[in-house]
Amino acid sequence: MSTQDTKIALVTGASRGLGRDMAINLAKKGLDLVLTYKSDHQSANKVVSEIENIGQKAVALALDVSQQPKYATFFEQVLIPELKARFNTSKFDFLINNAGTGLSKPFMETTVTEFHELFRVHLEAGYFFTQQALRHMNDHGGIVHITSGLTRIIYPGSSAYAVMKSALETLTKYQAKELGDRKIRVNAVAPGAIETDFNGGYVRDNAQVNARIASLTALGRVGLPTDVGSVVAFLCTDQGQWINAQRIEVSGGQAI
């Protein structure tokens, strides 16, 4: 258990979009937050202010999840000193692996460079960033990997991205099994198509794509960032304490 009453969640890629909404919803559940961002310091600090207005503590730290050799340094020289200074602890309770990049490209046109970039950001981070994080996490906490509806829904042009997310869903089950002794739960949340600036705003800004996906979704619209964060936050509460090793799709019934 945490050394203090308030639990702390680390959310990667939380300066905007889905990550921002996850952080806000976690704060509404009474958690303090550590947010990471790749380059947009201003937006990340705005999220920190929003969380503080809710009444929780937060800090934003720079992190490029594609740089695996720097993971240990991030925890030991950046995160832990901040935890001690701002939260009076050296450990946190929940990890949400959300940071990511997209790629919309046919299988035959995808390059090795593009494939490797997706691998580093999604799968290598899910594996080795989590490995480093666990050295600094309390027992009885949890991990949430953000995967994708595209591991079920076959959408041409998404093969490389979907392969990484599929592997992450398999990793979720292995981590849940191996971390059971520490009572750390591991789940995957798989959003359907969401209106954000992710992947160049592909779903949000392309009216034809947006309308097509809405027509294929049982609830008749494309998802919004606010549809996902509350699900992630729920998994980081006592109400979600018996949910483990699950893939939870949040898609409004897309392509069923």
Rank of each mutant, 00 (worst) to 15 (best):
T147D: 04
G157Q: 02
G157A: 04
A188N: 11
M137S: 08
L123A: 11
G200V: 12
G200I: 08
L150R: 13
R152G: 02
G157L: 01
G192R: 09
I184N: 10
L150S: 10
H145E: 07
D197N: 11
T170L: 02
I146C: 05
G180E: 08
E178V: 03
G157C: 02
I154L: 12
K165I: 00
F128W: 04
N138D: 10
A188S: 15
A133W: 04
A188E: 10
D197L: 02
G157W: 01
F128K: 06
P156A: 09
K177A: 12
A162K: 07
A160R: 03
T147K: 08
I143W: 15
D197T: 12
A193G: 09
L179T: 05
H136D: 02
S148Y: 10
A125G: 11
F128I: 00
I154G: 12
H136G: 06
A188I: 08
Q175I: 00
D197S: 10
N199A: 14
I154N: 13
A190K: 09
A176S: 08
Y155K: 07
F198R: 07
A133N: 09
E178H: 10
A176G: 09
G126D: 09
R135G: 05
V121M: 12
Q175R: 05
S166V: 15
P191W: 10
H122K: 04
L179P: 00
R182F: 07
R152E: 05
L171C: 04
I154W: 01
P156G: 03
M164K: 06
T151W: 03
G142M: 09
T151L: 05
N199P: 04
K173C: 02
L150G: 04
V163P: 00
D197I: 01
E195R: 15
G126S: 07
Y161P: 00
S166E: 15
G192M: 07
T170A: 03
L150D: 11
P191H: 13
E124Y: 10
E195I: 01
R152P: 00
T172K: 06
H145S: 02
R120K: 05
